[in-house]
Nucleic acid binder design. Structure first.
Length: 379
DNA sequence: TCTCCTTTGAAGAGT
DNA sequence: ACTCTTCAAAGGAGA
């Protein structure tokens, strides 16, 4: 299990990862490491400040990507071929450049835009307009600020403090984020960049859809059928009264924290889409998978570290949560659906049975069933 | 409308 | 301890 120590680069969880990577192209990796000269380091430092660098794409990468697309699209040359793929150096270096520029600086977009929410996901490079710009010189890990309660309170007491969670959930919580590094804090005025149009705190549905019980819009909380719910609300801005049963069924789901690769994908997807003019996620993910392997140790380490922080914060916010909570969700949902239709006295199935209709009879839709229930005083 | 595809990594379940 | 399974994201495609 890849685990990063907060201290360092070599003991990171990427080790396992890198072993596999070495197997595939040890020589290439050595070349990479040698190539990571002091000049690169300087570039890295400067580019962390200059985010605009990250969005530039090199012609080399543009030239390299069509090959990747061909491989992805050509079933005869699938990924399993384990080609000497590190020939994608063009891509790799291009990527490297991008990480230098945007891996961290862009990440705040992910988090501040509430990526776990169905409509909130956006990468710094996506065509969706980012709402909050990362400020230069901010620590790379400021992206995780939404987890920090400081940003949602002005003063020592707040309804959003974690102590509140503990009270509500009856779970002991470590005294507030004491082990969360200081860089989780927003710079003064950081929140001020959030425009009212974001509706972070005023949206009437926030508490029921993407909000942690603290009121923190935590990305990991989504409504059961979050997408439709949010879409619907955005369009109409008038919440439709939901049946009680439906409301109960839509208890928010706490999602898994994203792992390193997921974070990487989230950031790079838009770029790959732009470069490859691909939209199919399966193909894009294949490309991203190869690029992930082509990343240098240092570059991957950034994402392992971010993922580790994510897990840490997730654990602090949801002490009792387990990945098991979301296990079998698909099957369970299907089962619930089935139960719903069984328990609904006006379901087509029930009505067919009640009125002796066969399966082919199409007229017995739910609406007509309600009508029938009314007409025939069905219970 | 729902599920599949496709990737990697984390974590739970099962052996 | 080890292997297997599920779920995180994404969005097009097909049932």
């Amino acid at each position: 299990m890849p685990q990063l120590s907060s201290g360092g680069g070599d003991d990171l969880g990427a080790n396992d990862e890198m072993i596999a990577f070495k197997d595939e192209g040890e020589q290439e990796e050595k070349i990479q490491e040698n190539a990571f000269t002091e000049r690169d380091l300087a570039d890295l430092k400067s580019s962390l400040v200059n985010e605009s660098e990250g969005s530039s794409s090199s012609p080399a990468a543009a030239a390299a990507d069509p090959e990747a697309i061909r491989r992805v699209q050509d079933p005869q040359r699938g990924y399993q071929e384990k080609l000497p793929d590190h020939m994608e150096d063009g891509i790799k270096h291009q990527d490297t450049g991008m990480y230098k520029g945007s891996a961290y600086s862009g990440y705040p977009f992910l988090m501040l835009s509430d990526p776990y929410l169905p409509n909130g996901s956006m990468s710094p490079l996506s065509n969706k307009v980012p709402v909050v710009q990362p400020s230069h010189g901010v620590h790379p890990l400021t992206p995780l600020i939404p987890y920090s309660n400081e940003h949602f309170s002005h003063g020592s007491h707040s309804p959003h403090l974690p102590a509140d969670i503990s009270q509500k959930q009856g779970v002991h919580r470590p005294s507030q984020t004491s082990d969360i590094p200081g860089f989780y804090s927003l710079p003064p005025g950081g929140v001020g960049q959030i425009t009212p149009s974001m509706g972070w705190f005023t949206h009437p549905l926030m508490l029921s859809s993407g909000m942690h019980t603290t009121g923190i819009p935590h990305p990991a909380i989504v409504p059961h059928s979050g997408k439709q719910e949010i879409d619907h609300y955005d369009r109409s801005m008038k919440p439709q009264p939901e049946p009680k049963r439906e409301k109960e069924a839509k208890k928010p789901t706490i999602k898994k924290p994203l792992n390193a690769f997921m974070l990487y994908m989230k950031e790079m997807r838009a770029k790959v889409i732009a470069e490859c003019t691909l939209k199919e996620s399966a193909a894009i993910n294949q490309i991203l998978g190869r690029r992930w392997h082509a990343l240098s140790r240092e570059e991957q380490a950034k994402y392992y570290e971010l993922a580790r922080k994510e897990r840490q914060l997730h654990m602090q916010l949801y002490p009792g949560w387990s990945a098991r909570d979301n296990y079998g969700k698909k099957k369970r949902r299907a089962r619930e659906k089935q139960q719903d239709s069984n328990s609904d006295p006006a379901s087509p199935k029930k009505c067919r049975a009640r009125f002796g209709l066969n399966q082919q009879t199409d007229w017995c839709g739910p609406c007509r069933c309600v009508l029938l229930r009314f007409l025939f005083h069905c219970s």
